[in-house]
């Protein structure tokens, strides 16, 4: 089954309310040698929600992202996007199926222009073949024009259109972070994984980021899973939060539940393992 056909069979029917969760992950785990990086991780992500994934450093949050995007293959468990299994698929196939991500340490294509970064991501949904490119057929011109137009539209939404012809590596840090999100959205995802989008941003930029993340969810109808260390931001925008510690899910629930959970407090404040119970 090719990447294209995966996508075409799973186009969402906008008129029908989908009751089943969009992304369903059950009991996935992975170990590196003796280290159990992630154990029995489960997650159910309905359409157009905004969930958070938090935990202390080294808890396995990014590993979960790498499992979801096919960078690592889980040792066990199941992952489904709508009705297709993601197990055993390569990263580019998973992106084609509809999961896009950003990276904790920015991974743009620095010597390509801003526009090319976005166009590159967009071409996943374009059917231009090598022959059409080399012969410059009308299909080539049409699909390149569409790609460019869509990329410019996206850049405009994120107010990067004036930088379209600059090299991505020359953008300011805040703009690079924003461009990573634009690029991920250009693959037309149904699930968007954001890995610490607020890292290194100043308070004002963080507020505007929180606003844009909500807007992205509403405008593009994507389900967003967010890794973030800024608790203010996470508690503010996420509807539900999953807390990882040492690769194990220790709590899942609404921000209120998370804030008052003794295990979470223990994990973050570094209290003795039994002190959580001592509160009661």
């Amino acid at each position: 089954m090719t990447a294209d056909s995966i996508h075409s069979t799973t186009q969402p029917d906008s008129g029908i309310v989908q009751l089943a969760p969009l992304l369903r992950v059950s009991d996935i785990g992975i170990s590196f040698g003796g280290l159990k990086a992630v154990q029995q991780f489960s997650l159910s992500l309905p359409q157009s929600v905004l969930y958070g994934l938090i935990g202390p450093n080294g808890a396995g949050k990014t590993t979960v992202f790498n499992l979801l995007t096919g960078v690592y293959q889980p040792d066990s468990g199941k992952m489904n996007l709508s009705d297709i299994s993601l197990i055993g698929r390569k990263p580019h196939q998973i992106t084609a199926a509809g999961i896009a991500r950003t990276f904790q340490n920015i991974r743009l294509f620095p010597s390509l222009s801003v526009l090319d970064n976005v166009r590159l991501a967009g071409q996943l949904r374009s059917s231009e073949g090598l022959l059409h490119t080399l012969l410059r057929t009308s299909l080539h011109h049409q699909s390149e024009a569409e790609l460019k137009q869509r990329a410019m539209e996206l850049l405009e939404i994120f107010e990067l259109q004036h930088r379209a012809h600059e090299l991505a590596g020359n953008l300011s840090y805040g703009h690079q972070r924003r461009l990573e999100i634009v690029r991920a959205l250009a693959t037309s995802p149904r699930v968007l994984l954001l890995d610490e989008p607020a890292a290194g941003l100043n308070p004002q930029e963080k507020r505007s980021l929180a606003q844009s993340i909500r807007e992205i969810r509403d405008r593009f109808q994507v389900a967003i899973l967010l890794i973030e260390h800024d608790m203010g931001l996470v508690m503010d925008i996420c509807e539900r939060i999953v807390v990882l510690d040492h690769g194990v899910t220790i709590c899942e629930g609404t921000p209120d539940v998370i804030q008052n959970d003794p295990q979470v407090i223990a994990a973050y404040l570094g209290a003795a393992p039994d002190s959580g119970q001592n509160i009661f």
Partner: peptide
């Protein structure tokens, strides 16, 4: 051929492999 590759989708996909393989995969490049 080289020039048309360079300024079009298939060529950009090749260039993305040069720039960053992991990011290229995440953008759906095989």
């Amino acid at each position: 051929v080289a020039y048309r590759l360079k300024v079009s989708s298939p060529g950009r996909a090749m260039i993305s492999v040069r720039e960053d393989e992991i990011a290229a995969q995440a953008m759906g490049v095989d």
